[in-house]
């Protein structure tokens, strides 16, 4: 682990292009090349600044594409199956979303749909759009900067993994009431969560922004 150093002291006129400011505490650092696999932290607050990895772009693109496919199957295949007293009830992910669609709670339907389906989809799609060309070594696509901003903004709101924990809690709540079986969509969704966590671990925000800027110039 390396720690980026502050810029050289007597304060001559700084060229902003050669500096990085820590997003968390504003401390200035000299922007230097960080070798792949190393992690550069802020010298004051310890926030992780740069953590480039060999082949990270290709990995993220692959994982985002996988996540996109998994999400499609998670939405359309049966998610959970409940049987009690000879009656069988099958629910898809869409049914869970539509649970609030009656009466006063309709707005919550849109919110849940956004949190567990729409925003994760938006995030995967924008990541593919931005990082796809970069991984192939090409120039960034048009509006790539705006697309990556959207991808970053949706990050806290894409709650697929929170939903999975909710499913587990719900299953235990009704396990006494009826017999339950898990559909293919459930496993697709679980895989999706694992893929998402993996993908977010590979991602280094500052490195991607820098790469985008360099490729735009060239």
């Amino acid at each position: 682990m390396t720690s980026l150093t502050p810029p050289p002291q007597p304060r001559q006129a700084f060229d902003p292009e050669t500096l990085i400011a820590c997003p968390a505490c504003d401390a200035l650092h000299a922007d230097m090349a960080v070798p792949a696999g190393a992690r550069a932290r802020c010298h004051r607050c310890g926030t992780l600044l740069l953590a480039p990895r060999e082949g990270a772009l290709a990995q993220i693109v692959t994982l985002a594409a996988t996540a996109l496919v998994l999400m499609m199957s998670a939405v359309f295949f049966p998610f959970l199956e409940l049987s009690a007293g000879g009656k069988v009830q099958r629910s898809s992910l869409l049914d869970a979303v539509m649970a609030f669609s009656s009466g006063k709670l309709l707005p919550l339907t849109f919110a849940v749909a956004a949190l567990i389906i729409v925003l994760p989809l938006v995030r995967f799609a924008t990541l593919l759009y931005v990082l796809g060309p970069l991984a192939l070594g090409a120039r960034p696509a048009r509006h790539a900067v705006r697309a990556f901003r959207i991808a970053e903004a949706t990050r806290p709101w894409a709650m697929a993994e929170v939903f999975i924990v909710g499913v587990v809690v719900a299953l235990i709540k009704i396990s006494g009431l009826a017999k339950l079986s898990l559909g293919p969509a459930f496993w697709a969704f679980v895989t999706l969560v694992l893929v998402t966590v993996l993908k977010d671990n590979f991602m280094c925000r500052l490195t991607i922004w820098k790469t985008l800027e360099e490729r735009r110039k060239s």
């Binding site: 009830q89 629910s91 049914d95 869970a96 929170v162 924990v165 909710g166």
Partner: peptide, 27 residues
């Protein structure tokens, strides 16, 4: 974001438990 768990639990239960006579769950 992890606080949202309970909202999702309610959504899943309401979608799943609609066994007309035996039991229904509504949000």
């Amino acid at each position: 974001r992890w606080s949202m768990i309970d909202v999702f639990v309610v959504a899943i239960l309401s979608a799943l438990v609609q066994l007309d006579f035996a039991a229904t769950v509504n949000p």
